[in-house]
């Protein structure tokens, strides 16, 4: 029997190795989102992520919610947009703390930007945080922010097929708002069909019809969010 020292298998010059890595490149955002969630929980702040397509009425919904809830909650709003503070100024008029998050060219908010925005607030002075995501039904679904609940806003002026064209964003939604109910007839959009589509994708999502111009349905949204 040969000695062990004489019988070693050595990697030769240029030997090929398969290195198992198992590295998830999307995990970084998810980990930061968890940090945000922990921080918010620690400060007893309820955070709500409002997503939806461009022009669906996310800002109007938030403006309505702020007016309805500011008596009972100390509210702050994060307003995500590529550029400008137009919407942020609109919400600021209602006397709540607003941080504009300008993403530059990014089509969604990510947990890193939310973390930076959280540093701009006195977290001991608020108990409700409304986060308006960038208008988009695709990318925000891929980037959790660390919120407690997620709202998706669609409106009848986008036509009857928004839900079946973008099912993935509705999977994680707790509440779906179908806005501009007053225009449904003119747009010839069946809101109940839209609601059924949401229920098909996510039977547990609560669906609320609103007209954020008049404020109709906003208290039902607040109730659906347990606020």
């Amino acid at each position: 029997m040969s000695k062990v020292s004489e019988n070693i298998v050595k990697a030769e010059e240029g030997e090929v190795f398969d290195i198992e890595l198992e590295k998830d490149v999307l995990e970084a955002n998810r980990k930061l989102a968890e940090k945000n969630r922990e921080l918010l929980k620690d400060k007893a702040i309820t955070a709500i992520d409002v997503m939806g397509s461009i022009g669906a009425g996310k800002t109007s919904l938030i403006a309505n919610l702020v007016q309805l809830l500011r008596k009972n909650y100390r509210i702050a709003v994060f307003k995500g947009d590529l550029t400008t503070t137009i919407d942020a100024e609109i919400i600021k008029r209602y006397g709540v703390e607003v941080v504009a998050i300008n993403t530059g060219k990014e089509c969604h908010l990510d947990s890193n930007l939310v973390m930076k925005a959280l540093q701009k607030l006195n977290l001991d002075a608020i108990d409700l945080l409304l986060i308006e995501n960038v208008g988009n039904l695709i990318c925000p679904a891929e980037f959790p922010l660390g919120s407690d609940r997620r709202v998706v806003v669609v409106s009848v002026t986008e036509g009857p097929y928004m839900v079946i064209k973008h099912p993935f964003i509705f999977m994680d939604a707790d509440v779906v708002v179908i806005n501009k109910a007053d225009l449904a007839k003119a747009m010839q959009v069946d809101m109940h069909k839209l609601k059924n589509d949401v229920k098909k994708v996510n039977p547990e999502a609560k669906v609320v019809f609103t007209n954020c111009r008049s404020g109709e349905g906003v208290s039902a949204v607040s109730k659906a969010l347990d606020l």
């Binding site: 190795f17 398969d18 590295k23 998830d24 999307l26 099912p167 999977m171 994708v201």
Partner: peptide
């Protein structure tokens, strides 16, 4: 359309995987 309803019963499902992009392995010469 994919649905969050269970294919077997009326329950709700949660996502276990599918939201990931994983570098499984790298073959290299050393």
């Amino acid at each position: 359309m994919p649905t969050m309803q269970c294919p077997k019963c009326e329950g709700m499902v949660e996502i276990v995987s599918g939201k990931d992009c994983i570098i499984k392995s790298i073959r290299m010469s050393i």
